[in-house]
């Protein structure tokens, strides 16, 4: 297989194992490119990409922009805060206006689940979903899979536990789908208020005791507590306090030492941004088994691969 079947990348759900492997294998070649003296290839010289960020992002947006620039594409950026969205323009109108200026490919992050699918059904350029609300974040799952492949060679049979705010996490959903398609065994761990009941039906293990979860896994992917999505005002909070969350679910050096007492080593991942001292302790985040910065580096390579594979379907 050398091509993706869909012209969009909306989520991991629509992809086959072969397609996931194609993206990851292509990303490996691009990782070679970004580690050369000249980190740029002329592949997308005449392609224009618009990055539409209707929700704040630093890492993902920079990562996409760098990926596009390393491929020599022309890049335009857009963020909702400084745009006509605040003047009441609809999403489809905004995007049609941007496309009227001859843009070939759209990368979009949006706070509403399904926004990328909605847009894909109404415009005819390739759409890359850079995160749609609490739904999916496919490039994050792909870069996580690449980081694990580098560490372990392959994902078949690998035990991965995803710790934290599963309810609000698009990273969790995309990761579960991606890891399962690549043959890994997945567990989610967190307070019962943060793990929706339907996750059990996805064929993942559900665990509420972090120590048992760590004892089981080869890899712990620690998610951020999404403070901005915890409700507020009259809403009943999902957990009593950050301090209590840290005491119950924080991944600390002591917890890891206990889980690793049998001799195994646990690889630590985090999609960022980290709340040090809440879901992850500083010495774990900076520890030798942490691949957090590899994930960031792989993010650029994976996004280059995705944009390259989708842009090849653009035609003359």
């Amino acid at each position: 297989m050398t091509e993706l079947r869909s012209k969009h990348l909306l989520g991991i759900r629509g992809l086959t194992r072969a397609e996931l492997e194609l993206i990851i294998d292509t990303a490996v070649e691009f990782k070679g490119v970004i580690n050369r003296p000249i980190r740029k290839v002329p592949t997308l010289r005449d392609v224009t990409v618009a990055n539409l960020f209707f929700e704040d992002s630093t890492r993902t947006r920079l990562s996409f922009e760098l990926a596009e620039k390393r491929l020599s594409a022309d890049v335009v950026n857009f963020s909702a805060a400084s745009s006509s969205v605040s003047k009441g323009e609809t999403l489809v109108d905004t995007v049609h206006n941007i496309l009227a200026m001859k843009v070939d490919l759209v990368v979009m992050r949006h706070p509403h689940p399904g926004a990328a699918h909605f847009l894909a059904s109404r415009v005819d350029v390739p759409i890359v979903n850079a995160g749609d609300g609490t739904h999916e974040h496919p490039t994050q799952a792909l870069l996580d899979a690449l980081s694990l492949k580098e560490q372990f060679g392959q994902l078949d049979g690998l035990k991965v536990t995803i710790v934290g705010d599963i309810r609000h996490s698009r990273v969790a959903l995309s990761n579960i789908l991606c890891l399962q398609k690549l043959g890994a065994d997945v567990m989610v761990c967190g307070p019962s208020t943060l793990i929706p009941k339907h996750y059990a039906s996805m064929g993942v293990h559900v665990e509420h005791d972090i120590d048992k979860a760590l004892a089981w896994c080869d890899v712990a992917n620690v998610l951020r507590i999404q403070l901005e999505r915890q409700g507020g005002g009259d809403h009943i909070p999902f957990f009593p306090s950050l301090r209590e969350y840290h005491a119950q679910y924080g991944v600390t050096k002591e917890r890891l030492a206990c889980a690793e007492s049998g001799g195994k080593k646990i690889t630590i991942m985090h999609p960022g941004p980290m709340n040090r001292g809440v879901e992850i302790a500083s010495d774990v985040a900076d520890g030798e088994r942490s691949v957090i910065l590899n994930q960031v580096e792989n993010g650029v390579a994976v996004r280059m691969a995705v944009i390259y594979l989708l842009a090849s379907g653009l035609g003359g």
Partner: peptide, 22 residues
Amino acid sequence: LDITFFRDDLRQRQSLPQASVT
């Protein structure tokens, strides 16, 4: 040396060449 990403026919090709190792 792999030249896939340096080709000038990305938009003309029907099928995408597979990248290999440099």
